[in-house]
Structures are given as C-alpha cells and as structure tokens.
Amino acid sequence: MMNLGFTIGVLGVLILSHAAYSTIQYRGLLKIVEEEFSGPPMNVVLELLVGLVLCLWAALSVPGKFISIHPDSDDNRIVSLPDNLDFMIFNHRGKVLQPDTGMKLKC
C-alpha cells in the first residue's frame, strides 16, 4: 500500500514536470507571436488536474495510517509486557479506572 502510494506520487510529480515544460514552450511561442499570457492551454490544465489528484492520493496514503487514541480501542491493546515489571505500582489513583479486561481478552 505504502509503495503503491509512493509510485503514484512520483508519477504525479512527473506529470507536473511535464506540464511545466509544456508551459515553458507555450510561453516561448506566445513571445514569438507577441501575445499576452492569460493561462496555459487546455491540455496542460487537464495535466495539472491529473497531477494534483495523484499527488493528493500520495499525500494521503504515504505518511501512514491514523491510530486510534481511545484507551479502549483495539489499536491500543497491550500485546507484550514491559521488562520493568518489578518497578510497576498498582496502588495509585488509576485504580478508579480499572480496565475492562474481559473485553480485551475476548479478541
């Protein structure tokens, strides 16, 4: 998934580069026929849109997945015990919030 997103991002950047190159040539042409630049031609605008969509996809998929912040969610299950068990203290105010252990072990 990550690799696919990265490839798509590279493709999007390449398309944008090609659009930039086309715009340079278009501007050169306009300079020759002595007209003002009001906007790139239609196919370049389409290219820009495609590049934007591909880069949007990459930007949303490459950095990683969101992880739940709820203490009770499946993402936050404790799957291994820490090494410093000797130093753990259970006699503190967290007693009031005893976790729902039955629910966690069910999965």
């Binding site: 999007g12 950047v13 944008l16 659009a19 930039a20 715009t23 906007g39 790139p40 370049v44 605008v45 820009l48 590049g51 934007l52 880069c55 930007a59």
Partner: peptide, 9 residues
C-alpha cells in the same frame, strides 16, 4: 504541490 500548480497556472 499546490504552489507548483499555482506557479504553472
């Protein structure tokens, strides 16, 4: 990416 697109446009 948005800056690049705005620049090209």
């Amino acid at each position: 990416i948005g800056g690049v697109i705005a620049g090209i446009l």
